[in-house]
Structures are given as C-alpha cells and as structure tokens.
Amino acid sequence: MTVLVTGAFGLVGSATVAHLAAQGRRVVATDLDIPANREAATELPPGVLVRYADITDPAAVDALFTDVIPTSVIHLAAVIAPHCYSRHALAEKVNVDGTANLVAAAAKQPTPPRFVLASSVAVYGPRNPHHITDVLTADTPVAPYDIYGTHKVQAEAAVRSSQLDWVILRLGGVLTVALRLDLNPDFIFFEGLLPTDGRIQTVDVRDVARAFAAATTADCLGETLLIGGDSTHRLTQGDIGPATAAAMGLVGGLPIGRKGDPDSDTKWFATDWMDTMRSQEVLDFQRHSWPEMLVEIAENAGWKRHVMRLAAPIAHQILKRRAAYYKAPGSYADPWGAVTAKWGDPRPHATGQGKQ
C-alpha cells in the first residue's frame, strides 16, 4: 500500500513522511526538484522513495501517478501565507490548479486512491472573539477573506466534486518543537502583525502527521475534520511567541504586538478555537500538549538557552524596530492593512502580484 505525499519537504510534509515510514508504510515523497529539496532528501528515513514533480504540470502529474500507482494521496503542497500575498498567480496555480491536476490524475487510475487534502481554518475568514463566542466546527460556514482561504475553499470543492474517496483536514496553527535559528524574517514579521488577543488553536506538527497518516485508512470517508491540539492548545496569538521564545531562553526577546479592534469584524485573522472531538475520535492523533511542547523546546535548546538569554535584550530592540506597527499610528492591530503594505492586497480580487 503506497502513500504518495506532495509537498513532502515542508514542515508538515517532512513530519508526515517520517511518521508513515516509522509505521512501515511504503512512502513516495514528491516535491519540486530544487537544491533545498535535494539536500532535504538526503535526510529522509530509509526506504522512502523520492519522485520530483511539478504539480502545476498535468503531464508531469499523470506520469507521477503512472509510476507510483498510489493507494492513497496526502496532498500538502501549497503556497502559504504570507508568501501567497505577493504571488497571486503562482499561488492560484499551485493551490487550485495543482490540486485539480492531482484529483484528475487520481481519478484516471484503474483503482483510484483515497485522497486526503490539507485545508486550513483560513476558509472561515476573520474571527472577532468579541463578537464570536462559539468554536469552529466542520459545519461553520466558510467565509474566506484572503486568497489563501479562498484557494482552500476551491481546492476542497475540487475534491468533493470528484468521484474519489476523500477526506479533508482543516489545520489550525501548526507548531514544532525543533530548535531553528534560521527563522524566516517574513514569518516573524507576519506573526507580529496578528492581533495578540485573537484566538488560535495550535497543534504539534507530529500530531498533524499522525492525523494525516490515520486519515489514509480511518473510517471517515467524505468527512471534513478539524485538526488542532487538545484543550491546552486553545491559546491567544499573543501567548505563543513570548512563551516559545522564553522556552528557548529569549526571555522578553519578542516585542509585544497590538490587540485587535473589538468593533471591527474584518481586522482580525482567520484563526479560532475549534471542536476537535470528532477528529480525535476517528484519527486519535492528539499526543502533545502545549505545556509539554514548551518543556521539549527548552530541552532541545539545551546550553544555547544561556546564550540566548544574554542576547534577548538585543533581539528585542532589533525585532521591535522591524515590527509591523513600529511607530505606526493607532492602537489596534490592522493585520490586512499591514499585509497590504508589505506584500500587496491579500484579497482574491486583487489582480496585481503585490509588493516584493
């Protein structure tokens, strides 16, 4: 039984491939043929096969399926936020057209594979916690604001309208305990522009990998499931960065962002707490609590925590001056305004490629 994993060298992809390999599954990892992925492929578990392919090329996708003959597909490849905001055309080509190509190729197989799609809570749009008190469910109406959420709605529609056996997993805020000192400045800037009191349900990437692996065989065909951690992962956006930084030793290293405007229903980001009862029941994936993750982050930092504690004041001053709202007027966060100023209009009707 062969599992084909697209986007295999991303954060979720690499964890999913590792989990499947540890289960003894036959895994084929596919992603773009670029130097970074070639290097990452050298770290794959023994037995994992690599097939490079561009999912925006229908012929390449057809050839991939003919070669691999997968029993199931875990589709993770995507251009995610914030990079999708400055590359509208590319993001649509990958997120929407690429998904359609995979669905079409899967449907042509003599025995079509089960198709597991990675979606996102971005499909629900901005969530003002001052006006919305319920939690997200699979039945919560979708109302995407940005192109990423819109692309995921379109990708879900392509999967649902197919004749394939399918499962859709909508992910919350995926985190890792791995210590990384090469953090992307764009991601740091992006996280800093989100309202600090916005609700978010995080989840350990290893638990996400477990969920995807389980979804290839679990009794959940035709279901849309929400993937978040246990109740300890019901946080606010402002909880995450400082706690993670402190666990690494950067106590006080991150500047404090801005709260959201309680009177605006659009100046919030597309995250919220979620009901994961059904997904946990059928996938049994929640293993790592938020407090346990912080302990593990500290353990992984080891002796470097002492060095980073000394560097924390300097890091704070540097990040403060590079933050989205540094010397900006107003007192509330304006995430979409900040996104537009740095990367371009995030809305799906924007025709330009955004700011580079």
Rank of each mutant, 00 (worst) to 15 (best):
A218Y: 05
T137Q: 03
T224M: 08
V159C: 14
A215C: 11
I200K: 00
L225Q: 06
K152P: 01
I168S: 02
D139V: 02
T150S: 14
A215S: 12
D197C: 02
D165C: 05
F190K: 00
A209G: 04
I200H: 00
I227T: 01
Y148D: 04
F190Q: 01
A155S: 14
V203C: 13
E191Q: 15
D165H: 09
F187R: 13
G173P: 00
N184F: 05
I147S: 12
T137K: 10
V174N: 01
F190W: 09
Q201M: 08
D204P: 13
G222N: 11
G149L: 07
V174T: 10
R210E: 03
A213K: 00
L175T: 15
D182Y: 15
T202S: 10
D207G: 07
F187V: 11
W166N: 11
D182H: 14
D139M: 04
G173W: 06
D165A: 11
I147G: 02
F212N: 03
F190C: 00
D219A: 09
L175H: 15
Y145D: 08
A138V: 11
A138L: 12
T216F: 00
A178G: 03
T150Q: 15
D139T: 14
L169H: 03
D186L: 01
R180I: 06
V177E: 13
S161Q: 15
L175I: 12
F189H: 11
E191I: 12
D207Q: 03
A218F: 04
Y148L: 03
V174K: 02
E223F: 04
L193N: 06
G192V: 07
W166G: 08
E223K: 02
I188T: 15
S162C: 10
G192P: 08
P144N: 05
